[in-house]
């Protein structure tokens, strides 16, 4: 299958007044055309910074310190800003959690969509408008012709997110990075958007990176999952492998703590302790203070093992054959 994106040993850090924080540390993964990769992690795990790094949206005091981001075999790291602009919005698009971050509140939808078309393509306004209309139709907005003349505030939250997705689709990008796009939405609206997104990816063979804290959403949407903890990618593999047979104790603990995986009314299996601060990460495995399997070996940086092609776990004592 054609590989759209390959991230190799990505390392992104931020310089703060308390010291340097490595938000993304030695992260590697790839996404194929038409594939949906879910990146799962808790707040501060580095999943959003990973997404921002791919789009070249890391501003000082942050910077990409190492690694490569190969998009269709071209390295995006260190690409000059004017070259990056040719990619951003055209071949790589991003959808944010809050659609009001994408949309300008004082401009009509048509102005914004047409502007995005013209930013990359030399077409006349009629064609641009037509493409904007088609994109709105694609994401399931009823009567797109009339809706083009609306302002963002005239849309509901779910509809705004559809407009943001439509904007990402305007140039038929090869890769879309979506950062928690349904987290702020209601369950029934989330269901509608997941449905549209899944359909679009399969039809247009767009690669999609879906960043989320919600394992259950990723379970239903993605082909493969990558789990992040404290800036590191601790486990990745196909959805079925990772969720049914987790190998990293963190993944296993996370899955075990979901209410639906526990007997109703009984205490939930819980991961003790709390997520560590990235500022004072001690050497070795960041999860070891919360891990039931930790021992002296975990004081060293845990090794990455590759039990099968596309499957990867960063742990000194992986759970063999899964189970939790």
């Amino acid at each position: 299958m054609a590989e759209t994106l390959r991230v190799e040993n990505l390392r992104t850090s931020f310089l703060t007044k308390w010291g340097e924080v490595t938000a993304v540390d030695d992260v590697s993964f790839s996404v194929d055309a038409g594939e949906i990769l879910g990146i799962v992690g808790e707040s501060g795990s580095g999943k959003t910074v990973t997404g921002f790094s791919i789009l070249g949206l890391i501003d000082p005091p942050g910077r990409i310190k190492g690694g490569r981001i190969l998009f269709q075999d071209e390295d995006l790291v260190g690409l000059p800003e004017n070259r990056m602009r040719e990619y951003r919005g055209k071949r790589i698009a991003m959808v944010f959690q809050d659609p009001m971050m994408t949309l300008n509140p004082v401009l009509r939808i048509d102005t914004q969509l047409i502007e995005s078309v013209l930013a990359h393509d030399k077409v006349d306004r009629v064609t641009a408008r037509q493409r904007a209309r088609d994109a709105l139709g694609q994401v399931g907005i009823p009567s797109p012709d009339e809706r083009l003349a609306s302002y963002p505030h005239q849309f509901s939250g779910g509809m705004r997110q559809r407009v943001a997705i439509a904007m990402a689709l305007l140039h038929r990008p090869a890769l879309i990075v979506a950062d928690e796009p349904t987290t702020a939405l209601d369950v029934t609206i989330q269901g509608q958007i997941l449905f549209e997104v899944q359909k679009l990816c399969k039809e247009s063979r767009t690669a999609l990176i879906w960043i989320s804290h919600d394992l259950s959403v990723v379970a239903g949407l993605a082909d493969r999952v990558a789990v992040m903890y404290a800036g590191k990618l601790v486990e990745q593999g196909s959805v079925d492998d990772v969720l049914d047979r987790p190998m990293h104790p963190y993944t296993s603990g996370l899955i075990g703590s979901l209410p639906s995986n526990n007997i109703r009314g009984q205490p939930l299996r819980q991961i003790p302790g709390m997520t560590p601060s990235l500022l004072n990460l001690s050497a070795g495995c960041a999860f070891r203070t919360r891990c039931p399997r930790a021992d002296a070996a975990c004081l060293e940086s845990p090794p990455v093992s590759v039990p099968a092609s596309g499957r990867e776990v960063r742990c000194a004592h992986p759970l063999v054959g899964g189970g939790s």
Partner: peptide
């Protein structure tokens, strides 16, 4: 969404 529901065809309301 449930973790047991894989690559479901969402049939939204």
């Amino acid at each position: 969404p449930r973790i047991s529901k894989r690559r479901s065809r969402f049939a939204p309301v």
